[in-house]
Amino acid sequence: MAVDAIEHAAHHVAHVAVAPTHSEIPELPNVITVLSEYFHGNPLVGWLHRWENLVFSLLVAAGLCVVAWRYGRKPSVIPRGGQNVLEVLVESIDAFVQRVIGPAGREHTPFIGTLFLYIWMSNLSGLLPGCKSSTANLNTTVGLALVVFCYVQWVRVKTLGVIKYLDHMAGSPRFDDIAELSLPLKLLIIPIKGFVMIVLFLLELVGEFVKPISLSLRLGFNVFAEDVLLAVLVGLGIAAGVMIHLPLPIQLFVVPLVLIFSTVQALVFSLLSSVYIALMLPQGEHH
């Protein structure tokens, strides 16, 4: 029955790829979609299907934790085995972050590095049979954008202090110029200035939030497009192989491109997040 479910999912993909409709976007079947086909109506499987992006995100996170625990917990001065690979990654990411942010970037290396590894592995997980790129869903990327936004604001508050942060966000309003005005004029201008401050604060906040959101949209749609491309090519391969009863692996031709784009997308997200952090730091104000 499981084989039937997989076959059904494959035929579904082939059908969607060959004759896509407006409502149905081709998508490669993963373990959870196969389970949902097999156990249709099962509440647990239904719940898993609803949260499949989170499930695959947690799988990637668990994989990263296992590798980190295995090779990074007690590193030896003379590296061996997987520690070599991990050290190369850590050192490269640290150098990358410090090149963007400066020497103060070391403090932010864990955050940027985890962001990069998480997005990279999530992007690549779509290439594994039965898995899915959780970053092909906007809920994941917007969640990441939310974290980046909070982190950047926290860095700014830590750097400037709460008062200066609020002052900066409200456009650094000054009341010196109305000191010489008459009281009625003052009573008129102060509420207007207060309103402008609130509007500026909200605009600044939205402006700050839009930066990572734009990143998340770029990442989400790029990975989604990659997955759709793979699904379409797999579908075409299945459809083309019907005559010979053997699916043609057409999608293998774009796998190298997917590998490159997945890495580039992860790098872009991490790089621009580093730039946002750098802009929040004191030396970033001068650029």
Binding site: S57, L58, A68, Y71, G72, T114, L115, L117, V142, G143
Partner: peptide, 26 residues
């Protein structure tokens, strides 16, 4: 709900990796 779950899971991942891998390795 999914956005917040993703955000929380990522924050937890950052905390864990920071303690388990980044700090010792750096």
């Amino acid at each position: 709900q999914q956005i917040l779950s993703q955000a929380i899971s990522f924050i937890l991942l950052v905390i864990i990796l920071r303690k388990v891998a980044w700090r010792p390795l750096l």
